[in-house]
């Protein structure tokens, strides 16, 4: 039996879909036409551009390369602290400590990215006034602040992945005479690796799309390929932001639409991958769990 739903309720999801469709179609219409090699490399031959033999002035390649470096550096910085903290939270922490660490991670997760950026900015101001008068905002600083941003994602995903493992697995491993350390490193972590990987990809997506942090910590519009850890850099989200305000001609604007579409596709792809991995992981674990519970 269908109950008469007020038409307003039906309208709400339709409106949402319609609004999103309009925005997406608008982006596709303006951006899809620009998708070609020249969107990335301008009129420079791709190989020469990739290896930095010739600078690219009218393409997105420097911004893409900057984002790639930034994201990889961020994950390098955040991975071990995140994983370690997740393991501690899942396996070692007493209830009191777990709640304290959980609170810290919740605060970090709730902190707006612009405040993370401000933290980096403050750090540089402080360093300039004290030890390093030459310190400046840079790739490393951005990656450091971004790693703060993605840390809670990695911590909670690795903690959840470990907690989702069946208790029987632990007991079996202990009964075989393994110490807690070996149980964790040889049995639990390999079993949870897929869940942890899903968290890493999610972190990757967050680091790639965030704009406010890098805006305050060293992203600029024209730096070319990233030159080093202590240099300014270009990044895809910043290029989009910059284009919206400062574009000079229709060509630059079209490139902005191309960049926006590219970033959208990238983050959707990353998040779908993470979602798929996580779902598969949980299904497998629950399957194993159910089999273990059956009496």
């Amino acid at each position: 039996m269908k109950s008469p739903l007020p038409w307003l309720l039906r309208l709400a999801p339709l409106l949402l879909v319609a609004v999103c469709a309009v925005l997406l179609i608008f982006l596709l219409q303006r951006g899809l036409g620009t998708f070609s090699l020249s969107l990335l490399f301008g009129d420079v031959p791709p190989l020469q551009a990739i290896f930095g033999q010739r600078p690219v002035w009218d393409g997105l390649w420097p911004a893409c390369a900057g984002t790639l470096c930034l994201v990889l550096l961020t994950l390098t910085l955040a991975f071990l602290p995140g994983l370690g903290c997740g393991i501690y939270l899942a396996e070692y922490a007493s209830p009191g400590k777990a709640s304290f660490i959980g609170l810290a991670m919740d605060i970090l997760a709730g902190t707006p990215s612009i405040v993370m950026g401000l933290f980096g900015f403050t750090l540089i101001v402080f360093l300039r006034q004290t030890f390093l008068p030459n310190a400046n905002t840079s790739l490393l600083l951005s990656a450091g602040c971004l790693s703060l941003l993605v840390l809670p994602v990695i911590v909670s995903s690795s903690c959840e992945a470990l907690r989702a493992l069946p208790r029987d697995l632990r007991i079996t491993a202990f009964a075989l005479g393994m110490t807690k350390k070996t149980v964790i490193s040889k049995i639990l972590i390999p079993q949870a690796s897929q869940g942890i990987a899903a968290g890493l990809i999610l972190a990757l997506a967050r680091a790639a799309e965030d704009t406010a942090v890098i805006m305050l910590t060293g992203a600029v519009a024209n730096a070319g390929l990233p030159a080093g850890l202590f240099d300014k850099f270009e990044a895809l989200p910043f290029a989009i932001y910059y284009t919206a305000g400062e574009y000079q001609n229709t060509e630059e604007l079209a490139r902005g639409f191309g960049a926006a579409l590219l970033l959208l596709l990238l983050s959707v792809l990353l998040v779908l991958t993470a979602h798929f991995l996580e779902r598969r992981y949980l299904r497998q674990r629950q399957g194993f769990h159910a089999a273990g519970r059956a009496r």
Binding site: P81, I101, F119, L123
Partner: peptide, 19 residues
């Protein structure tokens, strides 16, 4: 592991403290 946890918590404290 303990170092990682310490670092993660320290980061939050540093963030708030610094600002």
């Amino acid at each position: 592991i303990r170092l990682a946890t310490f670092l993660a918590v320290l980061a939050v404290v540093a963030l708030c403290g610094m600002i």
